[in-house]
Design a protein around this nucleic acid. Structure first.
Lengths: 333, 333
DNA sequence: TACTTGACTGTTACCGGTAACATGTTATCC
DNA sequence: GGATAACATGTTACCGGTAACAGTCAAGTA
């Protein structure tokens, strides 16, 4: 060991000033090509790795973009992350990720922690935050982008879609195909705010279609996934209390419900239509394919990247991007 | 704006030295309770957020643990990440994540980038790296942990299991239940080294059981998932060329194959046994459940955290932790 | 010749904390 | 009462880069 190799070490080895080394390694035009080559060579030989912490400190630009996701174990959010990540790491920006576990209190703690790293922007999933979180990020000149939601009062910018409108597409489709008795299957509490908005969207749309007499089925506290969907439907038993359509909060939940129906001997879509949300891979590959809504999870990440680049370069960007939602009809409805 | 609030600002506002502020905010016993309270109060009032970059710079301890994963869009790796993350963020350590997209060249670039942030440890998925990567991380006194593999020549520490041994469990099970003509379905290239090891493990085990006359089916370049498994089986057609057991490189691939069989009218497990790998949720919820191998993805993350804490506190830790693998027999075999 | 210009390199100070050491002040003890 | 310890706070320097501002020197120009 003996401490890391610094620019001073390189400078001493070559008999130049540290400043020249700094310039050479950043490919500053002021340094002669010859000197640059010599410096680069010695840097390689000595195994020099430049200190991003020192640079971040001196320049007051961290090169970090902080990102909060409810969970990384969710193919949709993971896709958004990928879209964002791919676009950013060509720009020398590094993502700093944190998971909120679907809880605003955890989000607050996380944001507090992320801010200590001086991120150059903050991307948060969802539009619901604690008061303290809003205070933390407000009035600090930090670009903030909320995603997967289009909040009525955004903190800054937003890239997402209307969960309520997306659910209306599903309800309209079910109504048009003759379903009369709907049920919604999602998490019990409001911790998953997107889930709560979807539920509200279904209720509102059902009312418009004269299908207000519907049921809300509880799959347990957020996050709910395949097993929760399956367990809830198996608990209902074979008659399903007369529902002819089951609207699930997400594709994994819908897949769980579909598997449960197979075990129970319920015919899908004959006896029961099932719909999901999010165009997860399982919806496309399952047999039958699950009717769902595609919101372009990847697209959201890419749109955020585009927006960030615009913000960093000072070009003007829209405050709000609606990526829209598209019904994808499968074999379960 | 007008610049961030610093400790000097707090010190000036209170008529104390910055050092006292620093001590107070770190809850140093040397500062009187009264002074601490005053300082904390002013810090809150002025919205002070401490600068982790400056601290990292001065103390030469970044508080980062760098982690490379092949992909974050993989429930297994995501679980490992969660296990690690949960255990670390109570310790004031933050994970710095990067995805290699299953390519060692990308890994090299990523490691180079991650090292600029002076991580206090490096966790890498897999045991295959470029020469340059090995050089980069070697001889710098940085704790390195390789996971999801137990390399013959580890760079430092390792937490994982033997992919080959795990596949032997599956082959033994299939042999014991009378399957005679095996096929392995995985990625074509060697980019996914874990996949390649699983394939090799299957071939070796098959030979031991006198089932060497088996087929290798190509699902395309890594990463392969549900859709690739489904497409490959659908391409085979209904007779499946006489296989009676399909060993898939992962549960998602197995699920895709299972769905394809349903569409083709192939009876599983009657005509064909199917096995997966990794105990993904889809394997448990699918009907029938998929026979798989549980390697405790979450456990790996937790074991890594435990190891890191041991390394940071100087207690001695094993160089190698084998979390083992366990056969989980489902309804597909 | 004296002056300007451009190409290259060097000097100084500083980013915001904190380790190490120094200092002042009040209790404690024989 | 004087020495000592225990407590509370202050001073100084530094972590590794880089912005801003000086030079230096050869070539070109008036």
């Amino acid at each position: 060991m003996g401490g890391r190799v610094t620019m001073r070490d390189l400078a001493a080895a070559l008999g130049v000033s540290p400043m020249t080394v700094s310039r050479a390694l950043r490919d500053d035009a002021a340094v002669s090509a010859q000197t640059k080559a010599r410096i680069r060579q010695v840097a390689d030989r000595l195994g020099y790795v430049y200190d991003g912490t020192a640079t971040a400190f001196r320049t007051q630009r961290s090169g970090f973009v902080a990102v909060t996701l409810p969970s990384i174990n969710n193919a949709n959010f993971a896709e958004t992350y990928r879209g964002l990540s791919n676009a950013m790491d060509g720009r020398g920006m590094q993502l700093l990720l944190g998971a909120t576990n679907y809880r605003v209190e955890k989000e607050e703690e996380l944001v507090r922690q992320l801010l200590t790293r001086n991120p150059e922007a903050l991307v948060m999933t969802g539009g619901h935050h604690t008061e303290a979180t809003r205070d933390l990020v407000g009035g600090r000149g930090l670009p903030v982008i909320e995603i997967w939601d289009l909040p009525a009062q955004p903190l800054g910018h937003a890239v997402g879609f209307s969960n309520a409108d997306a659910m209306a597409l599903i309800v309209a489709h079910l109504a048009a195909t003759g379903r009369r008795k709907l049920a919604f299957l999602g998490a019990s509490d409001g911790a998953d705010s997107r889930g709560a908005e979807r539920r509200a969207g279904v209720l509102a749309a059902a009312r418009r279609f004269g299908l207000a007499d519907m049921a809300i089925l509880d799959a347990g506290p957020a996050p709910v996934s395949m097993r929760h969907g399956a367990a809830r439907i198996e608990a209902l038993g074979r008659d399903l209390r007369g529902f002819d359509a089951l609207i699930c909060v997400s594709d994994p939940v819908a897949f769980g419900a579909l598997s449960a129906c197979r075990r129970l001997g319920v015919d899908v879509p004959g006896d029961l239509a099932i719909t999901g949300f999010g165009q997860f891979e399982v919806a496309q590959v399952s047999a039958p394919q699950i009717t769902t809504v595609d919101v372009g999870a990847r697209r959201i990440g890419e749109a955020v990247a585009e927006m960030l680049i615009g913000l960093f370069t000072g070009s003007d960007v829209p405050a709000r991007v609606d990526v829209g939602a598209r019904l994808v009809v499968g074999g379960t409805s």
